[in-house]
Each structure stands twice: as structure tokens, then as C-alpha cells.
Design a protein around this nucleic acid. Structure first.
Lengths: 224, 224
DNA sequence: TCAATAGTGTCTGTTAGACATTATGGA
DNA sequence: TCCATAATGTCTAACAGACACTATTGA
């Protein structure tokens, strides 16, 4: 994309749920005759741009709209290979609401995060770092809602938490903690999905907390 | 230090306790006639160097030895001013054991973190980011021990935790949680400091955890 | 002796996780 | 009807924080 040996690149890991899996957005890069090559959307920041602005610009063409969240992960300045050969790459995570990924740019596609095609080693590290950062922030701030449409069932919400944490949660405990956190409110609608009893729809509506807690906080482990 | 408008700088926030305060290492910069100016130790990374290596090189001359921990905080690429005018600065935190800061380089000095002299706005943001990162990692990994000599009293350890967390902890709860975490073991020595009963000295000696926890974990708030 | 700090034992309220039960729809 | 999922109530073990107490030194 940019000229030879830039000092910097900005790389964005876009995440969205697809079914029961978390997926990452990759773009196919040139080389029409050689075998397929994929990479994270990335570019060198321009001279008049902050790195946050560069990251926003990098996701714009591939994603239709702006993501629900875009945050820096870290700088990666080791000797691992990067497509642009940049000395240092700055990783970002973008969270995209489920279903909002309808209009993908031409050569972009979503891949399950645990089944990525071969990518440059440094970009592989950026993806891992992005997952770490998201998990770390999950109990500090309510970022799980960024991956959901505006109304959702509690089972959907729990599924997102399980996707991000990589482990099952206890249903009753999850709902108790959620209730105590005052982050959601019920709507009048119910949704029937397949078998079983229909689920009530909720929306994200954080209330002022009187004293203490910041996020949702689960120690909760195994699930039935 | 380096030529005009480098693309990158690496800035290191070195932390060590002094008495009951956390202090940051700053260096005085040139300008012998003008009024004092201080800044975080920083430099542009060299072309053959990773950013981690650059950070290690930056702290070496000012600190006597290598710090007990050196980790990246984040990249700071906004439009705030930086001494070198770098487009992007990468912040690092170094933790230095108490007392190990005997041989400081020429124009370096420790300042209480809440009473820093005026520094460039971006470096101010790097210091804040470093404090955030340290607090965030405190309950994930036992970094408090990096700020202590090899043997210490439990009151000293608790004081470090209070310094880093910025709030008082409950003594009995602190010791209970510490005992449960299997991170320290007692030595045969006791130390008498001023009045009161002498305190037993402990050393950092993490044991294998059978099941769950990673760090120390305190919800614990107020102290007697 | 008093003051100050170290170190411990007990009580209580909160809560995470397990378990059980009811509710409600589709096949 | 049976089955699958939603939603909720109760029990229990673990634990954080409060409180009280003993232990041991210096002044």
C-alpha cells in the first residue's frame, strides 16, 4: 500500500461474532496469480494524522461504517515480519456489532479467530494481543454490548461473554450479576428462536451506580 | 538527543518507592542558562534495534543497573507536544526495587508522582498511562515485589500495594489473601523498626497453584 | 507504665456456584 | 405428549471486612 520501509504501520483487528464464533476481518492482497495471501487492514499514518485517526481511516473502506469501538492494543516493534516491513506496528481492536457487517468491501472476509489463514507473524501477534486486550477490558467496562444489536436476549449476551472469555458461565449467576450491575433494561418484546420458551429482549441502558462496581464482574465458571 | 523530527521516540517511566510515596525518574535537559527543564528519559530507536531493546538502552545510563521489570504501556500518537517532536512516542514502565537507586546518573532525580515538575504534555500522558498499566496488572501478576528488596516485612508489602492502588487495605484481609496466594515464605529473621513489636521478614517465593488464582486479589477497602 | 506496631482468631454479611423448579413454546 | 429453552428461587461454601484480642518491643 505505501512506499518502501515505512517507520510505522497501523493495523486493525476488527472483531464480530458469527454464530457461535468470534471472527476477524482480513483483506486479500494483490498477487492475482500467486496463491492467496491475507492480511490485517493496515497502512502507514500520514504526516498530519494522529494514530487514532489513521486507525479509523484504515477500517473505513473495508467495513461499511465505523465500528462500535476502536481502541489501541499496543505497539509491536520486534523483528517479526510485517507485510509493509514497518519497523514498528501499532495494533488496534475494532468491535463491530453483530449483523452490521453486511456491506463488506471487495476483497475482505471474516475468519474465525482460531482458524485464521497464514498471515505475517507480527500480525498474528497483533491478533493475539487484541484478544488479550479485549478480555482484560471486559470486566472493567461493558464492551460486550458493542458486539450486539441494539436489542438482544440475555442468552445472546451470555454467549458473547463466553466467546470473549473463552469459557462457559453459570446462567443464574450471570443474570444475578447482570441485574446487580444495572446495565440492561427489559423491553416489551419477546423473541422465539426455534424450540423452547421465547426469550425477553433487553437493551443496553446503563444506570448510575450508587457506590462501587464498574463492569459486570464474574468469577463464575462452569455452566449447566 | 537525536536529530530533527524523528518518527518515533521511546520514553521510560521508572518507578520506585521513596518513603511513603511513589516516585518517577526524570532527567534535567541542557539549557544551562534558561530555567530548569525536566523530561522522561527517551530516545529514538536505532535502525537495528527492537523497541524493547531501545527502552532497555534508554534507562541504562540514568539508572545504575537494569530495572526489575520493564514493560510497554502503549503508543502515544496524538498531537500533544513531545521534547523530541516525535510523531509517535512509545511509553514503557520500569519498576525499580527500593534502595537500588543509589547510583543515579548525573542529571537525574526522583520526583513524587503527584508532584512532578512541568513536563511536555505527551510525557505527562505517558506517566498517567504508566500508572494505569501498573494498577491494572497488579491483580494479574505479582509485580509489587519488583518494588521491594529481596526480604521485606508484610507491612512494607502492604504499603506498596496501597501506594500502587491509591487506597488503604484491610490488614487482616491482606494477610489472609496473601497466605492463600502462596507468593511469599517467611525467613528466620526479624526486624525491629523504631517502636512496636519487630516484624518477621519474608521473601518472594511463588509456589505452584493447584487450581485457580493468578495474583493476590483484594476487594479489600478500608483499613484500621 | 504506656504507646506503637505485629500478628491472629472470630463473627457476620455478601455472593458465586450448584441445584431444583416452574413457565412456555415447538415438534 | 415430549423436549428444549427461559426464568427464578433456595441452599451452601467461601470469603471480604470488621472487630477484638494477644504479643513484643522502645520510650
Amino acid at each position: 500500500m505505501s512506499a518502501r520501509r515505512p517507520a510505522l504501520s497501523v493495523d486493525v483487528v476488527s472483531l464480530t461474532p458469527h454464530g457461535r464464533r468470534l471472527t476477524v476481518l482480513l483483506v486479500r492482497v494483490g498477487d492475482s496469480r500467486s496463491k492467496e495471501r491475507w492480511e490485517l487492514p493496515n497502512d502507514a499514518p500520514r504526516s498530519d494524522e494522529t494514530i487514532d485517526e489513521a486507525a479509523a481511516r484504515v477500517v473505513r473502506p473495508t467495513l461499511g461504517a465505523q465500528p462500535a469501538m476502536l481502541e489501541q492494543v499496543a505497539a509491536f516493534g520486534d523483528r517479526r515480519r510485517h507485510p509493509s516491513d514497518a519497523a514498528v506496528s501499532i495494533g488496534y481492536v475494532a468491535l463491530v456489532a453483530s449483523g452490521a457487517s453486511a456491506s463488506l468491501g471487495g476483497d475482505a472476509a471474516w475468519f474465525p479467530v482460531d482458524e485464521l489463514p497464514p498471515i505475517a507473524p507480527r500480525q498474528r501477534a497483533i491478533v493475539d494481543g487484541a484478544m488479550h486486550a479485549v478480555r482484560a477490558r471486559l470486566d472493567q467496562s461493558p464492551i460486550a454490548f458493542r458486539l450486539l444489536p441494539s436489542t438482544f436476549t440475555l442468552s445472546q449476551l451470555q454467549e458473547i461473554y463466553e466467546l470473549l472469555l473463552g469459557r462457559r458461565l453459570h446462567k443464574a449467576s450471570f443474570r444475578r450479576a447482570l441485574h446487580a450491575s444495572w446495565l440492561v433494561e427489559p423491553t416489551d418484546e419477546w423473541r422465539s428462536e426455534g424450540r423452547g420458551r421465547p426469550a425477553q429482549l433487553f437493551r443496553y441502558a446503563p444506570r448510575k451506580r450508587r457506590g462501587s462496581r464498574r463492569g459486570v464482574r464474574f468469577e463464575g465458571v462452569s455452566g449447566t
